[in-house]
Design a protein around this nucleic acid. Sequence first.
DNA 1: ATCGACACTGATAATCATTTTCACTTTCAC
DNA 2: GTGAAAGTGAAAATGATTATCAGTGTCGAT
Lengths: 157, 157
Amino acid sequence: MPHKLRQFQQHLDRSGLKATRQRELIARAFFATNTHISAEALYRRVSGRDHRIGLVTVYRTLKLLKEAGLAHERQFGEGRALFEHASSERHHDHMICTDCGKITEFENCEIEALQEQVARRLGFTLRYHKLELYGFCRECRANSNRRAGRVRAVGAR
Amino acid sequence: MPHKLRQFQQHLDRSGLKATRQRELIARAFFATNTHISAEALYRRVSGRDHRIGLVTVYRTLKLLKEAGLAHERQFGEGRALFEHASSERHHDHMICTDCGKITEFENCEIEALQEQVARRLGFTLRYHKLELYGFCRECRANSNRRAGRVRAVGAR
DNA sequence: ATCGACACTGATAATCATTTTCACTTTCAC
DNA sequence: GTGAAAGTGAAAATGATTATCAGTGTCGAT
C-alpha cells in the first residue's frame, strides 16, 4: 500500500506542504479502507491509533487527498459526504441499497452514450453527471420477504 | 390554479390538519411558480404579501405539500434543496447548467430501461434513481466562447 | 545539530440549511 | 361561542463542514 502513500507525499512536497505524522496516519487509514467512508468514520478509525488527532485534521487531510487526485468525494442523498479511492480507476456510477446502505459500483457505456445524446439534443455541453440507483440488495430483499412471510403467517393463524 | 390548492386543502382535512391563512398563502405562491424554487426564495415571495410569515412556516408547509404528493424535493449538488410541482406529471430527470444554474427537465426511457437492466444484473431491486447531467447551456457556452475570444484578441495585439 | 520561517494542529467558534422548542394564537367541531 | 388540539413565529438547536487563532512541528538553510 505504500505506493499511494508515496504519491500523497510527493503531492505535498510539490505543493510546498509538510509531511506530518497526522497526515500520514490519516492517509494510511484512508488507503486501508476498501469502501466508501465518511470523514467521521475515518476519524473514529484514526482515533483508535492516536486519540489526540482532531476531526478537523481529518477533513483537511481528505481535502488534500482530493487535491492530490487520490480521493473522490461523493454526496449520496442524506447529509454527509462519503470518500472513496480515486487512483486511476475509470469513471463509474453507484447502486445503493436503501436498507443496509451497501454501495456497489458499476459502469455502463450505453447509458453514458445516451446521456451525451440527451445533452446534445437539449443544446447543452455535457461536462459531468451523477447517476445513482437506489433499491434493495439481494440480502435485504430476502430479509424483507422473510419478515413479510412471518407477519402473514402470524396474521393467518 | 385553485385545483391544486383544493387538493392541498383536502389533504389537510383528511389528515386532521388545519387550513390556515399562512398555508394557503404559501401554497398559492408555490403553485404560482413554474420552476424549481428554494424554501428561502419562496419565503421571500410570500414575505412580499405578508411579512409576518416566518421562514419556518414555509419549510413546514413545503413538507406538507410533499406529504400531499404535490411537491418534490430535489437535492442538486451544493447545499440547499429545491422544490418543484409534483401533480401528476411523469417521472423526469434534470440537466443543470453549471454556469447560470438553469434547470431543464427531460425523460428518456432507453436510459430507464438500461438502469433496470444494470440493477437486475447486480442483484438489486431498483426502487428509484437520481440522474443529473451537468454542463453548459447554449447561452453560457456562447458567452464563454465570446469571453475566450476577447482574451485571445487582447493577448494577441 | 539548531534555527527560524512558515505551515500545521486542535479547540473552539462560525456557517448554513433545516428542524425543534416553546409560549402564545388560531382553527373548527361541537 | 368554546375549548381542545393544531398552528405560528422567534429563537435556540442541530449536524456537517469550514474558519479562526494561538501554540506546535517541520524542514531547508546554516
